[in-house]
Design a protein around this nucleic acid. Structure first.
Lengths: 212, 212
DNA sequence: AGAAAACGGTGATTTTGATCACCGTTTCCC
DNA sequence: GGGAAACGGTGATCAAAATCACCGTTTTCT
């Protein structure tokens, strides 16, 4: 298992000095999470850098008894889960929940700070991963503000299909509602409407997106 | 004037190797913008890193004929205006508009990439500025989603006062509406309501926040 | 001074989505 | 097999905010 994890590290950090790679292997620790569990809870203080080696995680904002999906973190590129606590010991402002069985590697913050200075490519990886997160968050924000729920639901389903590489979405209306920060009834109504419009078909246990 | 700008650079990058400081001075160029002008327009391709040396800039999202305020960039700490185009030549996803007379320094992307590798502290500044922007964006997103306009207006005014260091806001209802992504009538009604509630007082040409 | 433009107030109406209430079906589990 | 829990559908109602329409005042510009 450890060997598998080591190969995941190479995938996450494609261009990495061999010495840094060795250091990472020596200092990291691995954590496995089943699907639908919290990896990070909003408000927690982290003293490590979490990296998604395998699987998929969704980032959630939780505020005032409303919660909603911010963006996804995948293994492979752009796999660093959180940065904001790196240089400033503040509680994280979001939660991270696994979407599937997931392996997370943690690196001590002190080491990471050191590596940013010592290994230029490491800093660069951090920056570009960070950029990706920022872009994802900005896109989500715009969608929330500028689009109605119907459009957002369609985008959400399309996105699910793309990332699952099939045109079925195996989620209950309630789970979808949670991700979109709304209620089950609203999702029920819109899916019905979209079904009539021929955008999707609702099977017993899943939703199927039609059209290209 | 150039001398003044050079001292602003020191303020923006408090801990900077002397050699890098010299390199920056040699390669940068300065641009002055009057208040309320576009520094960066959403959709543009930038081949430089913009840094706010003096003044204040607001970041705007523009989408589907809706636009709204994302966060502010100030001179001093956390003054880097945009990163996302750094390692990936994509159009920027927001606009930047001056709030007051502002001086912006631009650094060629190629140089910046080089410096990230050669000067560890430069990478670190980039990362921590980036963190700040991310946090600001996340806070804004949460506020938009979780709070009603009334609360958001109050926060907005409080924020204006804090950053202007006085309890007056010299903006028309229309301008406020634009920042909050709503319409003038809505702001008019709410300010009236808040006036009656004793939260603020509307003078001829400005709004005055009461209470602490 | 006078016209034009910007500003602010306010009523009426509409739209979107949230919430409540209720009910039949399906699935899960003991 | 049977009961509980989760699921999905749908009508009714409500609330927040957007939109439209109109009007008087203030400011700006020539």
């Amino acid at each position: 298992m450890v060997n598998a994890n080591q190969s995941y590290i190479k995938q996450c950090f494609p261009v990495l000095e061999e010495r840094l790679y060795q250091e990472i292997i020596e200092t990291c620790s691995y954590h496995e999470f089943p699907s639908s569990t919290y990896v990070v809870k909003q408000g927690a203080y982290l003293n490590f850098l979490p990296v998604v080696l395998k699987g998929q995680i969704k980032m959630y904002a939780e505020e005032e008894d409303v919660q909603f999906l911010l963006y996804y973190i995948n293994s492979g590129e752009s796999c660093i889960l959180s940065f904001n606590h790196l240089f400033d010991p503040k509680p994280v402002q979001f939660s991270a929940i696994t979407e599937e069985d997931t392996v997370v590697m943690t690196l001590p913050v002190a080491k990471v700070k050191e590596w940013v200075i010592r290994y230029p490519t490491f800093a660069r990886i951090l920056i570009s991963d960070f950029q990706r997160n920022f872009e994802d968050l900005l896109r989500t924000t715009k969608e929330i503000v500028c689009f109605g729920i119907e459009d957002r639901l369609i985008k959400y389903l399309e996105n699910k299909c793309k990332r699952g590489n099939c045109n079925q979405v195996h989620l209950s209306h309630k789970q979808i509602a949670l991700d979109l920060g709304t209620s089950r009834e609203v999702i029920s109504r819109i899916t019905k409407k979209l079904e009539k419009a021929g955008v999707l078909a609702q099977q017993k246990r899943y939703i199927e997106l039609l059209q290209a």
